[in-house]
């Protein structure tokens, strides 16, 4: 039972993480490879504020979301000046920069040793060290975030974001401030990634830079691409499918040294196959004047 609860908690965290990526990448085709860095900033903000300053759950969540959101404005301010492939490379550079900071800024992050002893949330006298209770917390938050994002997908903002993904110049010619729209999509996307990071830190009680590597970004990307970028329901189904997919591997008698790489190879293969099948639809050529 504990194992099922564990999987459900992971799914709730990944639902927030991937659906938030689905805003900027799925709707806006903004290939932001620094999404995992926003996730990391959220996790580290919670870890540091909870352990060093004794901040409560709500303070940590707000700070994590704000810091991740502000980080995205920095990325957006610089990377959005680049186009398509260059934009992806630019955001990848930001991701590498955050990763390097997490490893090397030892006085703050303890480097590869990570931050242990992150306390579970405390409020309403509920024992969140009980995983079932934590599942109620993370599950409720995931449902709340999904409702907000579902409504966001129906707004004029989402339509403008989709429009600029197809033709930025035609969208500008319809009086849309595309730069603002893209930056706001980045902010929302990253803020929710920060929330996912915060929940992750609270749940695992320990974080280190290896949890926020490029491999994690590949996993987020695999889920979004498998669910079809821009599809709200597709992204949810793909999250369930891909989080649960490697689980049967655990029951095969195999050493952990092989199991880990097998899981990564499985995701990489799925990503390749899905991209290959949908190669004409996932990254349509942007039109310009």
């Amino acid at each position: 039972m504990e194992y099922v609860i564990h999987l459900c908690i992971l799914i709730s965290i990944y639902l927030i993480l991937t659906q938030s990526f689905n805003i900027s990448f799925g709707l806006g085709l903004l290939f932001n490879l620094a999404h995992v860095a926003s996730y990391a900033i959220g996790a580290y903000a919670t870890a540091l504020f909870a352990t060093e300053l004794g901040a409560n759950f709500f303070e940590c969540v707000v700070v994590s979301m704000l810091l991740s959101g502000l980080f995205s404005l920095l990325i957006g301010g610089i990377s959005l000046r680049l186009e398509q492939d260059y934009f992806a490379v630019g955001t990848l550079a930001f991701s590498a920069l955050v990763s390097a900071l997490l490893i090397n800024w030892k006085s703050l992050t303890r480097g590869v040793l990570g931050i242990p002893g992150i306390p579970r949330p405390e409020f309403l006298s509920i024992d969140f060290y009980n995983n079932l209770n934590f599942l109620f917390l993370s599950g409720s938050l995931a449902i709340f975030v999904l409702i907000i994002l579902y409504l966001l997908f129906q707004t004029p903002f989402a339509r403008a974001l989709k429009a600029q993904a197809e033709s930025e110049s035609a969208t500008k010619a319809l009086a849309c401030n595309t730069a603002l729209i893209c930056n706001v999509s980045f902010f929302i996307s990253s803020a929710f990634a920060g929330l996912a990071g915060s929940l992750y830190a609270y749940y695992i009680n320990y974080i280190d830079p290896s949890s926020f590597s490029l491999t994690e970004m590949v996993f987020i990307l695999t889920i979004t691409v498998t669910g079809r970028p821009g599809s709200f329901i597709g992204c949810i189904l793909a999250t369930f499918f891909l989080v649960l997919l490697p689980e049967p591997l655990r029951f095969i008698d195999m050493s952990p040294g092989i199991l880990g790489p097998m899981r990564q190879a499985l995701y990489a293969t799925i990503l390749f196959v899905v991209v290959y099948i949908n190669r004409r639809n996932i990254f349509p050529v942007k039109r310009s004047v």
């Binding site: 429009a163 197809e166 033709s167 110049s169 009086a175």
Partner: peptide, 25 residues
Amino acid sequence: GVFREMTVLENIVTALEGKTSLWKS
């Protein structure tokens, strides 16, 4: 410059919403 991945109706709706302020959008 039509948005080919959108429906015909969505193309017009997007145009009608073009001048909407960020908060309202």
